[in-house]
Simulated scan of single mutants.
Amino acid sequence: MVEMNRKLTINYRSQKKSTAQIMIQTSITPFARKLKTPLTKSQIKVLQINLGKRCNLACTHCHVEASPKRTEELSPVICSQLIQVIERFPEIQIVDLTGGAPEMNYGFKPIVEAARQHGKQVIVRSNLTIYFEPGFEDLPEYCTRHQTRIVASLPCYMATNVDKMRGQGVFDASIAAIQTLNRLGYGKEPELILDLVYNPQLPVSDRFSLTPDQHKLEKDYKIFLQEHFGITFNNLFTITNLPVGRTLLHLQRKKLYASYLEFLESNFNPNTVEHLMCRDELSVDYLGNIYDCDFNQMMNLPAKTRAGETLTVAKILAAGTLGVIDEIQTAPYCYGCTAGSGSSCGGALTESRE
């Protein structure tokens, strides 16, 4: 284990307005019109829960705008309701925990344990550096004991690029954390899955590019990390930077927002649509409100019933069914999930178009 610099260099500035409050006019084709037919829900299989905005990092690309300064997190009441949803609906196969650093926020362990007791796969979206924060040193062993699937951010296999996006010293701490997980069997034992996530650097000019081919980049990651650090892992997920949260703020500062959206639309791939994560997912915020996906959550675009009503976890419990949403709410940033090979919380949606 390494001693992590407790005062990480963070590229973050407080914003008076959240990105969800920013109204932006664009000239691109409305996403719903591009599809020509409504984007509809299939059976819900994934319950993704954002436990709160508390985090020990403040990454430059974070669409949640999480940081050590944020205090919003799940309440005991909403935690109890979410556990009831996990218990009552057997069609939920995956409970996907995110944040902030999900491990820092209230309800993390109770939800993990309830989900595992009911046979659900639990995904923990970890920044890895949390393992070195006081009070969280037991997390690797805890996750091993409960066989949680760990999806960990490592936006590059080069230290300079990672530290630029996530803070000074984050790369070294991430490597040490992965080595700890490997020693516990992650990336080696079939029930202990460790996936890494690639995010491209934020653009600084209008020379945009799509994420690299996922399979090829995964090979590069595995070769480099094994040769230099003795690290093994299961899968690499390539995720497009959607113009949401700090990425949106960055694009606005660089006057690149409109041109970036135009680039994403120009690379629209209709073959990605049937695989979009919003099709079989419910996204829940720390207040218990329900959205079609995590990006809609961050932009305050709530899911709606057939009658046009917004949803909460309490309403789902009262209805006794998860099948209350027909049409998925869409926005211009949906082009980020459908450009090129597509993008989701599980990486690319189709084979590379190269």
Rank of each mutant, 00 (worst) to 15 (best):
G99M: 01
Q168R: 11
P110M: 12
Q168D: 12
D138H: 14
V95C: 10
Q93S: 15
E65H: 08
I92N: 06
T148K: 03
P140H: 08
H61S: 08
H63S: 10
M104P: 03
T160I: 11
E72L: 10
F108C: 06
A152V: 03
I86H: 01
I92A: 03
T144I: 10
I86A: 06
S174F: 00
L97W: 03
M165E: 02
G99Y: 02
A115G: 11
F171Q: 01
L154E: 02
C59W: 02
V162R: 05
G135C: 09
G167S: 08
A58C: 11
G135R: 09
V112N: 02
P155C: 07
I86Q: 06
N105F: 06
L82W: 07
G107C: 08
N161F: 09
A159P: 01
T160N: 12
E141L: 14
A114I: 10
V77K: 15
Q93N: 13
T160R: 14
V77Y: 15
I78W: 06
G99C: 05
Q84C: 14
R88I: 09
V170L: 02
Y106A: 08
F136G: 06
T129E: 06
Q81N: 12
H146L: 14
D163M: 00
A101R: 00
T71D: 12
E87D: 15
P90G: 11
A66Q: 04
H118A: 12
Q81D: 12
E133S: 08
C143Y: 09
I150T: 01
L82V: 10
T160P: 00
R125Y: 08
K69A: 14
T160W: 10
G100H: 05
I86C: 09
S67G: 11
T148E: 10
E73Y: 04
A101K: 06
R125A: 01
C62W: 04
N105V: 07
F136E: 07
T71V: 15
E73D: 09
C62I: 07
F136R: 05
K120L: 12
T144P: 05
E133H: 09
V95M: 06
S67C: 11
R145V: 11
A173F: 07
G135K: 08
S174V: 03
Y131C: 04
C156E: 07
Q93I: 11
P134V: 09
T98W: 00
T71N: 13
V85G: 05
V64I: 12
P134F: 09
V124K: 03
P134Y: 10
I83W: 03
H146V: 11
L74G: 00
E113R: 12
G99V: 02
S80Q: 15
Q147I: 08
A101W: 05
G135D: 11
L154V: 02
M104L: 15
G167V: 00
D96A: 08
Q117C: 13
I123N: 08
S153W: 02
A159K: 06
I150A: 01
K69F: 13
K120N: 10
F108Q: 00
T144R: 15
H146Q: 14
V112Q: 01
G99D: 04
M158S: 11
K109A: 15
D172W: 03
Q168T: 13
A159W: 01
D163T: 00
Y131Q: 07
Y157I: 05
Y131N: 07
K109P: 01
E72G: 10
T129P: 00
Y131D: 05
L128Y: 04
R166A: 03
F136D: 03
